[in-house]
Design a protein around this nucleic acid. Structure first.
Length: 292
DNA sequence: CAGACGTGGAC
DNA sequence: TGTCCAAGTCT
């Protein structure tokens, strides 16, 4: 059986069942694709949709974002989470203006060199914005390939070189077709081959799925415990940043003192925001970076 | 390389 | 109600 059978079945399913997302449309620019990929890192589509629309309306090009302040990028990021992504996306825009004439580069290595662009995002942009043939491996694809192709109930926690090779072998040879297969795999993983309760009855790959064929064995390995949030520095960072986002300019340190009672932890969280470049100190007051 | 890094919704 | 999860990156 040709290895591209999975890809062709996935593409047929995608053509009939894919969600109509604006960054997938014919009007989507490489910049729009890049913005969507960064926003979608660890954040669900439903929350990204309105943020992406607002972001693209305000900053339709990398140069437009590069000309604005980090503070405005952090504000527009809203409550998508992981606000360092907003800062890095702006730094990425600055880098594209400086290195690439304000264009999103099509070359994989040039993409990888940009701030906030890693193994996944670089390949996603090269494939989805430029139609190149690269394996695009995210958590959905890892899970789908682990099950369908390898018969395992789950994938490893991070993308490995082996994952890239395994996935590349599933792709059709024609570049645009390969890119379509990649987005189809991702969509299948997101909607059908889900982590908790996969909808095998609706899966177009069910006849070729090694995991299904072996009776859907349960995971045996050690389960990683989910990351804690309540009481962590991350929660305190979130509370501090919420105050600064809502303010129009610098706020007194005494106002930040109100968000968390533990002085040691609050100071540590604030120091980390300063170190990340998200926040700046002006005497006894604090503000989002560039929000003088 | 394990851990840090936000937030909200589903079960 | 608490657990688990959502298109990763960086150090």
């Amino acid at each position: 059986m040709p290895t591209t059978d999975l890809a062709e079945a996935a593409i047929r399913w995608y053509d009939a069942n894919a969600r109509d997302l604006p960054w997938r449309g014919p009007d989507a620019t490489p910049w729009g694709v890049l913005v969507s990929e960064v926003m979608l890192q660890q954040t669900p589509v439903s929350r990204v949709l309105p943020a992406w629309e607002a972001w693209m309306a305000r900053w339709p090009t990398p140069a437009a974002l590069a000309a604005d302040t980090p503070a405005e990028a952090i504000r527009m990021w809203g409550r998508l989470g992981y606000p360092r992504r907003a800062m890095r996306l702006r730094e990425c825009a600055v880098a594209m203006v400086e290195r690439h004439g304000g264009e999103v580069p099509a070359n994989l290595d040039e993409l990888l060199a940009l701030p906030g662009v890693g193994t996944y995002t670089a390949r996603a942009v090269a494939a989805f914005a430029y139609g190149q043939r690269h394996p695009v491996v995210d958590t959905n694809v890892r899970r789908l390939v682990a099950r369908a192709s390898q018969g395992e109930p789950d994938a490893g926690p991070t993308t490995t070189a082996a994952d890239l090779v395994t996935t590349e072998e599933l792709l059709p040879l024609e570049p645009a077709r390969a890119a379509r297969a990649s987005v189809a795999f991702m969509e299948l993983g997101a909607l059908i081959c889900t982590a908790r309760t996969p909808k095998c009855a609706d899966c177009p790959l069910v006849g070729a799925c090694a995991w299904r064929a072996s009776g859907r064995p349960a995971s045996t390995g050690p389960t990683r415990r989910p990351q804690q949030y309540a009481g962590t520095d991350r929660q305190v960072r979130g509370l501090l940043l919420a105050v600064l986002r809502a303010a129009t300019g610098p706020v007194p340190g005494t106002r930040l003192d109100l968000v968390w009672a533990d002085d040691v932890q609050r100071d540590r969280a604030l120091a980390s925001l300063l170190a990340d470049g998200l926040v700046e100190r002006h005497g006894e007051r604090y503000a989002l970076a560039g929000d003088v």
